[in-house]
Simulated assay, not measured.
Amino acid sequence: MTFKKYQNKKNPSGYEQSFKIYECEDCTDCPLRAKCTKAKGNRQVHWNTVFEEMKAKAKTALECEEKATIYALRKVEVESVFGHIKGNRSFRRFSLRGLDKVHVEFGIVALAHNILKVAGIRQLTSEKNPKNTK
């Protein structure tokens, strides 16, 4: 593959990313073409150097035992709470717009979650089905 050009693209949220585009010289007689690409032209690879640097940085951070244990704790402590709020409490969208209002709205959701957790109130489906209770 040879370097073809630099290209800047904006994603749907408006963030601009820069890519290096590499392209094969000629894919017409390649026996692996069907497995390699579905494009009508030659195979292209878009390489985002910033993204690759961030992936490498995250990988080195996860290889450190101390940071890996911190990330493992986050999965246990935080991710399950968001999953519970989305799945069991059916909170999937914010009703308000604006960062300050969203902070307040999620603060109310988190407060409700914590109060229900302390009070030991289970979701409605576990009350209807005795097999799901602890």
Results as ranks from 00 to 15, higher is better:
104 V>G: 01
114 N>E: 05
86 K>H: 13
5 K>H: 14
91 F>L: 03
42 N>F: 11
22 Y>F: 06
89 R>W: 13
59 K>Q: 12
10 K>T: 04
106 F>L: 02
27 C>P: 00
54 M>F: 10
15 Y>N: 09
29 D>H: 10
9 K>D: 04
24 C>W: 09
39 A>V: 01
22 Y>C: 02
10 K>M: 06
134 K>T: 06
58 A>F: 10
44 Q>R: 15
10 K>Q: 13
101 K>D: 02
17 Q>W: 15
56 A>P: 02
77 E>V: 04
124 L>I: 04
86 K>M: 11
91 F>V: 00
30 C>N: 10
3 F>P: 00
121 I>Y: 08
19 F>K: 00
67 K>P: 01
69 T>E: 15
69 T>Y: 13
131 K>S: 04
59 K>T: 03
57 K>E: 02
4 K>P: 00
54 M>N: 06
75 K>W: 14
84 H>T: 03
91 F>W: 14
106 F>C: 03
25 E>F: 12
77 E>W: 06
131 K>E: 07
65 E>A: 02
84 H>C: 03
119 A>E: 05
120 G>M: 07
102 V>W: 08
33 R>N: 11
36 C>N: 07
97 R>T: 02
11 N>K: 11
51 F>D: 03
56 A>R: 12
53 E>Y: 14
65 E>T: 02
50 V>I: 14
117 K>G: 10
85 I>C: 03
130 P>A: 04
67 K>R: 14
52 E>S: 14
1 M>A: 11
61 A>D: 00
122 R>H: 09
123 Q>K: 11
63 E>I: 01
82 F>A: 02
23 E>C: 10
35 K>R: 09
6 Y>C: 04
52 E>K: 15
61 A>S: 00
100 D>F: 05
98 G>L: 04
125 T>H: 14
2 T>M: 09
132 N>F: 15
68 A>E: 01
62 L>Y: 15
71 Y>D: 03
74 R>G: 03
118 V>Q: 05
52 E>D: 15
38 K>T: 14
101 K>P: 00
63 E>F: 06
74 R>L: 06
104 V>F: 13
130 P>V: 03
29 D>N: 15
134 K>F: 15
34 A>P: 05
105 E>Y: 07
41 G>T: 08
18 S>W: 03
118 V>I: 07
53 E>M: 15
103 H>C: 10
3 F>R: 08
54 M>A: 02
79 E>V: 02
25 E>I: 06
19 F>L: 01
126 S>Q: 12
128 K>M: 01
120 G>C: 01
120 G>H: 13
33 R>L: 09
42 N>A: 10
46 H>G: 00
53 E>F: 14
104 V>P: 00
29 D>L: 12
98 G>N: 07
42 N>D: 14
62 L>F: 12
115 I>R: 08
30 C>S: 07
69 T>D: 12
42 N>H: 11
129 N>L: 02
119 A>V: 01
75 K>L: 08
98 G>D: 07
